[in-house]
Simulated assay, not measured.
Amino acid sequence: MAFKEIIRSRAEQRKPDKQTSKLLFYLFTSTRGGFTRLRIIMLLLERSYNTHQLAQELELDYKAVQHHMKVLEKNNMVLKIGERYGAVFYLSTFLEVNIGALDMAIDKLDRKMNQKKVYL
């Protein structure tokens, strides 16, 4: 998964605290939109975007991206500068400092997505 190489190149060799790991695992692996939120974070690692630009890059509905941005902003993963349509999103300092914990969440998400469901 290319996400892991990007994260590892930016991560410091510091173990994140338990609460931070729990939050990242929840946001990116325990909810249905986790993979989409991870894709958004990967784009924001490169540069800032507004909601419309993210929707175009991800080929998703504007309202869906808007929902994910609200979730990420509420959980201190991104910062919003500006108002309404022109608001631009950046990675938060909190996420940049704890980007290494995201690597573990990606591993878990990768395993989860590649599991075969067996119904008995």
Rank of each mutant, 00 (worst) to 15 (best):
M1Q: 10
F3P: 01
F3L: 05
E5N: 09
E5A: 13
I6E: 15
I6D: 14
I7A: 02
I7T: 04
R8L: 10
A11V: 09
E12C: 09
K15L: 05
K15E: 11
P16M: 05
D17N: 12
K18F: 02
Q19W: 00
Q19N: 11
T20M: 01
S21Q: 10
K22V: 00
K22E: 09
L23D: 09
L23Y: 00
L24A: 05
F25C: 15
Y26E: 14
F28G: 12
T29G: 01
S30D: 15
T31E: 15
R32M: 11
G33L: 02
G34W: 00
G34T: 09
G34I: 06
L38W: 02
L38G: 06
I41N: 02
I41S: 01
I41V: 15
M42F: 03
L44Q: 07
L45E: 11
R47L: 02
R47D: 04
S48W: 00
Y49M: 06
N50P: 04
T51S: 08
Q53G: 09
L54H: 05
A55H: 05
Q56L: 05
Q56S: 08
Q56I: 02
E59V: 15
E59H: 10
Y62R: 14
Y62C: 00
K63W: 01
A64E: 10
A64L: 03
V65Q: 06
Q66L: 14
H67C: 00
H67V: 06
H68G: 04
M69H: 04
K70T: 06
E73C: 08
K74D: 15
K74E: 15
N75H: 14
N75C: 06
N76V: 10
K80D: 07
K80Y: 01
K80M: 08
I81Y: 02
G82F: 00
R84T: 10
A87N: 04
V88C: 03
V88G: 07
V88H: 05
V88T: 12
T93M: 09
T93N: 13
F94N: 08
L95V: 12
E96I: 13
E96N: 14
V97G: 00
I99D: 07
G100W: 04
G100C: 06
G100R: 12
A101E: 11
L102I: 10
D103T: 10
D103N: 09
M104F: 13
M104A: 15
M104P: 00
A105Y: 02
I106W: 02
L109S: 13
L109W: 01
R111Y: 08
K112A: 09
M113Y: 00
M113G: 07
N114T: 11
N114F: 05
N114S: 15
Q115V: 15
K117R: 13
K117E: 04
V118Y: 10
V118K: 13
Y119R: 11
